[in-house]
Lab assay of single mutants.
Amino acid sequence: HAATELTPEQAAALKPYDRIVITGRFNAIGDAVSAVSRRADEEGAASFYVVDTSEFGNSGNWRVVADVYKA
């Protein structure tokens, strides 16, 4: 099962156990969220919340930071 994305309210009520950072070329924010979901799932997380997204220069590469939560 894939890790689910939390709302800001849900994330605020929970304590993350880790923070992950992924970088890559994403065509849309949805693609980045899917990549975070896969990584969170690999780490055994039940859910995640994207904290920050930023573009690296003009290369089209993105850096996505997310907190991950157990259950």
Results as ranks from 00 to 15, higher is better:
1 H>E: 06
1 H>D: 07
1 H>M: 08
1 H>A: 10
1 H>L: 08
2 A>L: 12
2 A>P: 10
2 A>S: 13
2 A>V: 13
2 A>G: 14
2 A>F: 14
3 A>Q: 03
3 A>W: 05
3 A>D: 02
3 A>N: 03
4 T>S: 10
5 E>Y: 06
5 E>H: 09
5 E>G: 05
6 L>F: 04
6 L>E: 02
7 T>A: 07
7 T>V: 03
8 P>E: 12
9 E>F: 09
9 E>S: 10
10 Q>H: 04
10 Q>K: 06
11 A>W: 05
11 A>S: 05
11 A>N: 02
11 A>Y: 05
12 A>D: 06
12 A>F: 07
12 A>W: 07
13 A>M: 13
13 A>H: 12
13 A>L: 14
14 L>E: 04
14 L>Q: 12
14 L>A: 07
15 K>E: 10
15 K>Y: 07
15 K>R: 10
15 K>C: 14
16 P>Q: 02
16 P>E: 02
17 Y>R: 01
17 Y>P: 08
18 D>G: 15
18 D>A: 15
20 I>G: 00
20 I>K: 00
20 I>E: 02
20 I>A: 00
21 V>K: 01
21 V>A: 03
21 V>W: 05
22 I>L: 08
23 T>G: 02
23 T>P: 00
24 G>A: 06
24 G>L: 06
24 G>N: 01
25 R>Q: 12
25 R>G: 03
25 R>C: 10
26 F>Y: 07
26 F>P: 01
27 N>C: 13
28 A>L: 07
28 A>V: 09
28 A>M: 08
29 I>C: 10
31 D>A: 06
31 D>I: 07
31 D>N: 05
31 D>T: 05
32 A>Q: 03
32 A>P: 01
32 A>C: 08
33 V>R: 06
33 V>S: 04
33 V>W: 10
33 V>P: 00
34 S>R: 14
34 S>W: 09
35 A>I: 08
36 V>S: 02
37 S>G: 15
37 S>W: 07
37 S>T: 07
37 S>R: 15
37 S>Y: 05
38 R>H: 11
38 R>A: 12
38 R>Y: 11
39 R>S: 03
40 A>N: 04
41 D>K: 15
41 D>Q: 15
41 D>A: 15
41 D>G: 15
41 D>P: 00
41 D>W: 15
42 E>G: 05
42 E>P: 00
43 E>T: 12
43 E>G: 08
43 E>N: 09
45 A>K: 01
45 A>W: 15
45 A>E: 01
45 A>C: 11
46 A>C: 11
46 A>K: 09
47 S>W: 15
47 S>N: 06
47 S>L: 08
48 F>V: 05
48 F>C: 03
48 F>S: 01
48 F>R: 00
48 F>D: 00
49 Y>M: 05
50 V>I: 15
50 V>W: 02
51 V>A: 02
51 V>K: 02
51 V>C: 04
51 V>H: 02
52 D>P: 00
52 D>C: 15
52 D>A: 12
52 D>T: 10
53 T>Q: 08
53 T>I: 15
54 S>R: 13
54 S>A: 13
55 E>T: 12
55 E>D: 07
55 E>G: 06
55 E>H: 10
55 E>I: 12
56 F>G: 06
57 G>M: 06
57 G>R: 06
57 G>S: 09
57 G>D: 13
58 N>T: 14
58 N>C: 10
58 N>W: 07
59 S>G: 11
59 S>N: 12
59 S>D: 14
59 S>V: 08
59 S>Y: 09
59 S>W: 05
61 N>H: 14
61 N>G: 10
61 N>E: 15
61 N>K: 09
62 W>H: 03
62 W>K: 04
62 W>P: 00
62 W>L: 06
63 R>M: 12
63 R>W: 07
63 R>I: 14
64 V>L: 08
64 V>K: 03
64 V>M: 03
65 V>Y: 05
66 A>T: 01
66 A>R: 00
67 D>A: 05
67 D>T: 05
67 D>G: 02
67 D>L: 15
67 D>M: 11
67 D>F: 14
67 D>I: 10
68 V>L: 15
68 V>S: 01
68 V>F: 15
68 V>K: 03
68 V>A: 01
69 Y>L: 01
69 Y>N: 00
70 K>E: 09
70 K>W: 08
71 A>T: 13
71 A>N: 10
